Amino acid sequence: MSSQQMLDNERRHLAGLLVALQRCAWFLHQSEGKIDWPLHGPFLEKHRKDVDLFETLAAINERFAKLQDTLAAAMRHTALLMSEPADSFLKVLVFYEKLGVLDSAELWQQSRMARNMAAHDYETDYAIIAEHFNTLHQLSPMLYSTTQRLIVEVQARLAISPENSDFQQEFDTLFPTSL
């Protein structure tokens, strides 16, 4: 395989990641829209057997993590295509913070910690569960705006757009370029 073919494959991969980002952001936003925020422990305790509520919360947990993971992969991949150092993710975060794609590397790390705690903690205290989901909900706009700005940056610097328009209209409506 020639170096041009390898580069074309990497560009196609990034175009696919951009669609995945739009899809992840849209589904997370839709799931969050089903909840009356903020959540409170007594409410969750009262509705502890509400399957629809807890399925929605599980979807939010999963979709938040999926968006963040996909965003991290796209950020690293974009940095590599831009010939930027990507040997540590902290360098990637600092690079995107300087570009204005990411508001704050520290906020990203906080959201990563919140996401990881949920993945490894099986809490039964409803107040703590409510606090966790309220935190994810408060951090979601940072993921949405980072996603939107990364897509704009990739289009401007690398001339790569999402590989299809499956979620383009919904994404543009929910997260306009002016973020």
Rank of each mutant, 00 (worst) to 15 (best):
D36S: 11
H77L: 09
L28T: 01
R63E: 03
L107D: 14
G100Q: 04
H29W: 13
K34L: 12
L44E: 00
L81R: 01
L28Q: 02
K98G: 11
E62A: 09
L99S: 14
L99P: 08
F43R: 11
M75T: 02
K34A: 08
K98I: 08
H47K: 13
A59L: 08
N61C: 14
T56S: 07
Y96A: 03
A86R: 08
Q30W: 11
Q109R: 15
G100F: 06
V101F: 07
H29M: 12
R63N: 04
W108R: 00
M75A: 08
K66V: 14
A86E: 08
P85M: 06
A105H: 15
I35D: 05
T56C: 07
P38A: 04
D36L: 12
A58N: 08
H47G: 01
L102C: 06
F27P: 01
A25N: 00
E45N: 11
W26N: 10
D103N: 11
T70F: 03
T56L: 03
E32R: 14
H77I: 05
P85H: 10
M75E: 02
K66W: 14
D50H: 05
G41C: 02
H77F: 08
V94E: 15
D50K: 02
V92P: 10
L80A: 15
A59V: 01
A73Y: 10
V94H: 15
Q109F: 09
D50C: 07
L93M: 04
T70H: 04
G41N: 02
T78Q: 02
K66L: 12
G33M: 07
M75C: 07
E62R: 14
K34E: 11
W108M: 00
